Computed example of a mutant assay.
Amino acid sequence: MTIALLLLVAYLLGSLSGSLLLGRLRGVDIRTQGSGNAGGTNALRTQGWKFALGTVLVDLGKGVLAVWLALRFGGDVAWLPHAAAGAAVLGHVWPVFHGFRGGKGAGTLVGALLLLWPVSVLVVIGTWLLVLTASGYVGLSTILAGFSLVPLALLTDAPPERLVFAVAAALFLVYTHRSNLARLRAGTESRFERVRIWARLRRSGA
């Protein structure tokens, strides 16, 4: 019962979407604007950096809290914090409080990793920044950042539950970013040209 309750609470926490809660205070639903996604990137594009920052903080926080509760009250069940992290991410993507239409799960995943696997956050963010500044594609950066968890788990001899979680998280990010991949193949994916510092450096050195 305790395990089931903790997983339910983790899912409900995940269902508290930062952009949608803040959007209600502003009288907007960002799912009707921009890309239609309830995540930080669309919040930045449509509502500005302050709104986006609030969105990210809420989404990170609920991932942290879900894992903390599992660690605090879950006893010695090794897989439970990973399952709670997964439940929070599922809640973010399919939030019960918002018609099961949420974001793509990356922010909540990073929040969970802050407690679950702190060193991985440096690898994930480093990979994300490297790909973003090279390509300008946020979706691609997020997918490859997620996949960086898999070699990290293998190289550090991670326990089975961590390796399974890394693989599942990477594949899930591919699923939630499938529309980004489709637009990349079609050549219609939005690109942040301003952050492509490597391209600018190549042009300036040419």
Rank of each mutant, 00 (worst) to 15 (best):
F97G: 02
D157Q: 12
D76Q: 14
A166P: 02
V58N: 07
T142V: 14
G136W: 11
F97W: 15
H92F: 01
W68Y: 13
L69V: 03
L116Y: 06
F73Q: 04
V64L: 05
V110R: 05
F147P: 01
D76A: 15
G54I: 07
L109A: 14
A78K: 12
V131Q: 08
A88L: 08
T133Q: 07
G74N: 09
R72P: 01
V89G: 04
I143H: 12
E161H: 15
K62D: 03
L122V: 14
Q47W: 07
D157F: 07
G105R: 05
L130K: 07
L163D: 07
T46A: 10
L109I: 03
G74T: 09
G99E: 13
L132R: 06
F147N: 01
V124G: 02
W94T: 03
L80Q: 09
W128P: 00
A145D: 05
L57G: 03
V56W: 05
I125N: 00
V77E: 15
G75M: 11
H98N: 08
F165R: 07
P95Q: 06
L115R: 07
S148Y: 05
A112K: 03
L90K: 00
L114Y: 02
D157K: 03
W49V: 14
L113F: 06
V167E: 01
V64S: 03
Y137I: 14
G146D: 09
V93I: 15
G126P: 00
F97T: 08
A134S: 12
G103A: 08
T156E: 11
G99D: 12
L154C: 03
H82V: 00
L113M: 13
D59I: 04
L115C: 07
H82K: 01
V96L: 15
V64A: 02
L60P: 00
A52Q: 12
G103N: 10
R101Q: 14
A87G: 06
P160Y: 07
A78E: 15
L90H: 02
T55R: 02
A87M: 15
K62I: 08
P81Y: 09
A88T: 05
F165A: 12
I143M: 15
V110K: 04
V119T: 09
R162G: 09
A153H: 09
G54V: 06
V150G: 13
A87N: 09
G48Q: 10
L140K: 12
A166K: 08
L109N: 05
D59H: 03
F51T: 12
G91T: 04
F147S: 03
V121D: 14
L163F: 14
A83Q: 10
W49E: 12
G107R: 01
L114G: 04
L109C: 04
T108A: 01
W68R: 05
P160T: 11
T55C: 10
T133G: 00
G61M: 05
A112D: 05
A84E: 14
A153E: 11
L65D: 03
F51Q: 11
R101I: 03
V58H: 06
A66S: 11
A158D: 10
A106F: 13
W128D: 03
G74F: 08
